[in-house]
Amino acid sequence: MTPAPLARRLVAEAVGTALLVAVVVGSGIAAQRLSPDDIGLQLLENSTATVFGLTVLILLFGPVSGAHFNPVVSAADWLLGRRAGTGLAGSDVAAYAVAQTVGAIAGAVLANLMFDVEVTRLATTERTDAQLLLGEVVATAGLVALIFALARTGRGALAAPAVGAYIGAAYWFTSSTSFANPAVTIGRVFSDSFAGIDPASVPGFLAAQIVGGALGLALVRYLYPDVAAAADDVVVPHTDRSTL
């Protein structure tokens, strides 16, 4: 398959990640206002919006860029496919990560503007406990393993609902509420809301996500030894259809 031009893929990754963070942060702000005295209900509202929002965004942008929206997924795609000549080119990984991170910050700012939250105020929610970092390892490992297992077994068409469902479930079964994404983690710094994370907590989350990504990749390589052949189809199969 011939991938879409890099510029087009980067736009898809930036806009897709921006909208994902707008969904996460915006629904978090709305939940905080709608249910100010019930944290459990806030989490339910936030996770439900994220499940549907992420599913729709993968369907929308996946055919262009694969809908990674996540530097860990992009790096894993490159690492897995580099020997087999599949997946992202090494020169594209950094560009993807920059586009995703810039998009994530823009998405948080957009959510702030929509809900009239002070744009220049950074998040103050501390997330530094060891159990939260363990939750991020688990959440990220599961996400990476799921994505590559679906690609390897030819079930990429199920990625949108499956990834959405996994993240929605991980909101509840992980102590960290499943950020599982370095770009989204950085983006959430820029909104002092229910979904935010203070800057001092970010390095620990990023480290946990990298460890989780490595563990997830190791697991899927063990379960599916020839998984590298499917790296081109992560998160969903994508190719340049502009001439069709």
Rank of each mutant, 00 (worst) to 15 (best):
G81W: 07
L54S: 03
L80A: 03
V138S: 03
Q131P: 00
D116W: 13
L41C: 09
L41I: 13
A95T: 09
V56F: 15
T55P: 08
F52S: 06
V119F: 15
D77A: 02
T50W: 10
V144R: 10
T125Y: 05
F52M: 11
F69S: 08
W78D: 01
Y96D: 05
S74Y: 04
R82K: 12
G53N: 07
A94S: 08
L146P: 13
L44V: 15
A111D: 00
V109Q: 02
A106D: 01
T120D: 14
L57N: 08
W78Q: 01
T140D: 10
T50Y: 12
P71N: 08
A139N: 05
R127L: 13
A89T: 08
E136T: 03
A75G: 15
V64I: 15
V109K: 00
L43E: 06
V119G: 07
N46A: 14
A139H: 06
A111G: 04
V73N: 03
Q100I: 00
D77Y: 00
G87A: 11
N70V: 11
W78K: 01
S65N: 10
R121C: 05
L44W: 13
V102A: 15
L60M: 14
A76P: 14
N112D: 15
T86E: 08
T86I: 05
A130H: 04
S74P: 06
W78H: 11
G90Y: 13
A104F: 08
A108Q: 05
P71W: 10
T55D: 04
T55Y: 07
R83A: 07
T86S: 12
S74H: 04
L59H: 11
A67D: 04
G107E: 02
V144A: 09
E45K: 05
T140R: 08
D129V: 01
V64E: 09
L133I: 01
E118W: 08
T120G: 15
I58K: 00
Y96C: 07
R83Q: 08
L122Y: 12
F52L: 14
A108D: 04
L146N: 09
G85V: 11
L54A: 06
F52D: 03
Q131Y: 11
N46D: 08
F115E: 07
I58P: 00
V102I: 15
N70I: 13
S65Y: 13
A75P: 10
V64M: 12
L122A: 12
S74W: 03
V98C: 02
L146S: 10
A139C: 06
W78V: 01
G107A: 05
E136C: 04
V144K: 10
T128D: 03
A130Q: 05
Q42K: 14
L113E: 09
N112P: 14
E45Y: 14
V64K: 09
V51D: 02
V72Q: 10
A108H: 07
D129S: 12
L88Q: 11
L110N: 01
S65M: 11
G103E: 05
A141Y: 11
D92V: 09
V117H: 14
E136D: 03
V144M: 09
F115P: 09
A95N: 06
D92H: 15
L79E: 00
